[in-house]
């Protein structure tokens, strides 16, 4: 993380948050003064070196803000008189979204499980199990021999048996209890009981019309700051409740050149897999395979590949409102591939 500032007729601050950075190097590619440097992404991804992915030369930075506008992941931000240029009308804006539609979400939580960036805030309230079942259960203390067959077999973990004395004067102090918030009246306890001590009746079917299906409530929210637009969540959502716009359109290929011995070394290297913020890369049969459904075309793997055989070709980017001709020319270089 860094914050550098320039005081003058305007007060400009360029700040960088490493936790949002994916190590794509787009900022250093577009910097007109060559002031941003991408660090060693593979050793950083592997935890061999602890340092920020991007560093800045504060002496040469012109505080123009092009890096801040070009970063698709919100890792860089230029403020002018304490206002982010992302809020200013004249500066470019990424027309991307990562939104969960509350009306369609059923709170299954699968998006939360697959998100490679832990960018989803997910919580849900399930109803009490007792709200979904009807029945009665009673255990006859006189008949019970505290064998624990029922407690060991109860699939809901609803029965607690105390059958080991704590002290010599405690030998008869046994107890057996059923937690009615857990019991589903399945009857396993009754059937296994060797003493016929358990009375249990299930009336769930009989009352099924009267049992309201309680609503599962919750919250699923994508933290825009740390989302890298990989689309794992939207791809896995069974209800199509998530919209993710990727920052780029295009392709990523592995172009091996056998004559120059530029070939993918698969498991030996796996640098691409380590740096990919999207978990889009896998090594299959000794070769790197990128699933474009999950790739955000950031290009972090392209820089990381020691064989230099990964080619990203971006055909469009969702950065809009680019008003400066010189900025437009520089940003266009991101589109012809690296």
């Amino acid at each position: 993380m860094f914050n550098i500032e320039r005081k003058g007729s305007e007060y400009r601050v360029l700040s960088y948050k490493d936790q949002n950075c994916v190590g794509c190097g787009i900022c250093s590619e577009v910097c007109p003064t060559d002031s941003l440097r991408l660090g060693p992404t593979v050793p950083i991804a592997r935890g061999l070196i602890e340092m920020d992915l991007v560093s800045v030369n504060a002496n040469s930075c012109a505080f123009c803000g092009l890096c801040s506008s070009a970063c698709p992941f919100g890792a860089l931000d230029l403020t002018i008189d304490n206002v982010s240029i992302k809020e200013l009308d004249v500066y470019p804006k990424w027309n991307v979204e990562c939104i969960v539609n509350d009306d369609d979400c059923v709170y299954c939580g699968r998006c939360n499980d697959v998100c490679p960036q832990d960018s989803i805030i997910f919580k849900r309230e399930l109803p009490d199990r007792s709200a979904l079942v009807r029945g009665e259960i009673d255990i006859d203390d006189e008949k019970c021999i505290y064998c624990s067959f029922c407690a060991d077999m109860c699939p809901a973990g609803a029965i607690t048996v105390k059958n080991i004395p704590k002290a010599s004067n405690d030998v008869v102090n046994n107890s057996i209890e059923v937690d009615l918030s857990k019991c589903i009246f399945c009857g396993v306890c009754k059937r296994i009981c060797p003493e016929n001590a358990i009375m249990e009746v299930c009336s769930t079917c009989m009352y099924s019309d009267e049992i309201d299906i309680p609503e599962v409530t919750g919250e699923t929210f994508i933290v825009e700051n740390t989302c890298v637009s990989c689309s794992w969540c939207s791809e896995i959502c069974p209800k199509d409740a998530i919209s993710i716009t990727k920052p780029f359109e295009g392709n990523l290929e592995l172009v091996e050149i056998e004559e120059e011995e530029k070939i993918c070394k698969g498991e030996s290297c796996h640098a691409c897999q380590d740096v990919c913020p999207c978990k889009a890369v896998e090594i299959v049969e000794g070769k790197s395979v990128t699933n474009l459904d999950f790739c955000n075309l950031c290009g972090a793997c392209v820089t990381a590949c020691p064989q230099d055989i990964r080619v990203v070709s971006r055909t469009a980017m969702k950065l809009e409102n680019v008003n400066s001709k010189s900025w437009s020319e520089i940003l266009d270089t991101l589109l012809v591939g690296k």
């Binding site: 060693p40 593979v42 050793p43 011995e261 070394k265 030996s268 290297c269 640098a271 020691p306 064989q307």
Partner: peptide
Amino acid sequence: CDDCDLCIQNCP
């Protein structure tokens, strides 16, 4: 050595 070149690329 598998010639993956990771060392070449990353040697500071």
